[in-house]
Simulated scan of single mutants.
Amino acid sequence: MHGLGELESAAMDVLWRAGEARTVREVLDELNRDLAYTTVLTVLDHLHRKGWVAREKRSRAYCYTPTRSREEAAARAMRNLLADVGDPDGVLLHFAQSASEGEREALRRGLRKRA
């Protein structure tokens, strides 16, 4: 995900797939990597400070949940990428021309909902 490091992206993937709050230990277990508990704690703390996750204290541990869906995060990343290029209209036109029929239909639906 744009703006996230490799471990941050992996932790977000765990949280998005979970569909409910997860503790550091649960995220660590689901990452299935040889990482220290404190490493995952630091990653989740960074995500919290960046606004990607909310945390709630339950008993002695924090539980983490995403503050936005994977789709919202991807849309925000696309928006940031468009802001970084010199010709966002050109990028959108190239994307539209290369989009599959299913993608074009999804865009049409989205534009109809907005209107």
Rank of each mutant, 00 (worst) to 15 (best):
V43M: 11
G3N: 05
R76K: 10
V27F: 05
S59K: 05
T42D: 13
R55N: 05
K50E: 09
M78P: 00
A61Y: 12
E8A: 10
S69T: 15
V85D: 12
L93V: 09
R76N: 02
S100G: 11
D29E: 15
A115S: 15
G102R: 08
S98D: 10
D13G: 14
Y64V: 03
K57R: 14
L93E: 14
R108G: 03
L44C: 12
L111T: 12
A99F: 00
E30R: 15
D87S: 09
A36T: 03
L92E: 06
V14W: 01
A11Y: 02
T39F: 01
W52P: 00
G19A: 01
S59L: 06
A74E: 11
R68Y: 06
A83D: 05
T38W: 02
T23G: 08
A75F: 09
P88K: 00
D34P: 05
W52D: 05
Q97Y: 02
G110P: 12
K57D: 04
R114C: 06
T65H: 00
L107N: 01
W16T: 07
V43P: 14
A54S: 12
G102A: 13
S100I: 00
K113I: 05
Q97K: 08
R25T: 15
A11H: 02
Q97C: 02
R49N: 04
R17D: 10
T67F: 03
N80Y: 01
R112Q: 13
Y64M: 05
D29L: 14
T42E: 12
R76T: 07
R33T: 04
L107D: 02
